[in-house]
Design a binder for these strands. Structure first.
Lengths: 71, 71
DNA sequence: TTGAAATGTGCATTAAAACGCACTTTTCAG
DNA sequence: CTGAAAAGTGCGTTTTAATGCACATTTCAA
């Protein structure tokens, strides 16, 4: 998985929930600037930041065995 | 998911593969100090660090819908 | 088209991650 | 038990994430 996929997960989810970056920032406690940075692919968020975002969006971050068959 | 679960995933996987923190540090390019910090629960790693570790262990980091039924 | 809402970016500051090094503590086979 | 390997911690430095603020750019319904 690429960094992008994680970003897409968040943007997609946020889109589904119809909330703006600003709302997510407020709800999650993550700074708006940080969220913008992350969603625009310019950031390298910490686990804490990702967790806050995930919690707010009803998602959780996990490590799974990588699928080696597909490419 | 708690931060711990992520840590356990890594420690468990590393244990299965029979590699030390030092080896994982070398293989992944993540500093040994950083890895120790993370595995001992004292750290707040960046996505990049988690990705490097995951890549080396054949794991990938993903966001999944949180399971609200279980607890 | 148009303007407001939403998103993206430049700049500066503060807090903290990443890191190396040396040392302590823990683990465990023999 | 014992020693060596593995894991954890204190300390200091450098890099950078997190953040606010102001402004630029994009999106899109009316």
């Amino acid at each position: 998985m690429h960094h992008e996929t994680l970003i897409e997960s968040v943007k997609s989810r946020r889109d589904t929930l119809k909330i703006t970056q600003e709302m997510l920032a407020d709800l999650s406690g993550v700074g708006l600037r940080t969220l913008k940075q992350f969603e625009s692919g310019k950031g390298n968020p910490t686990l804490e930041t990702l967790t806050k975002i995930g919690d707010t969006l009803g998602m959780e971050l996990i490590f799974t065995a990588k699928n080696l068959t597909a490419d």
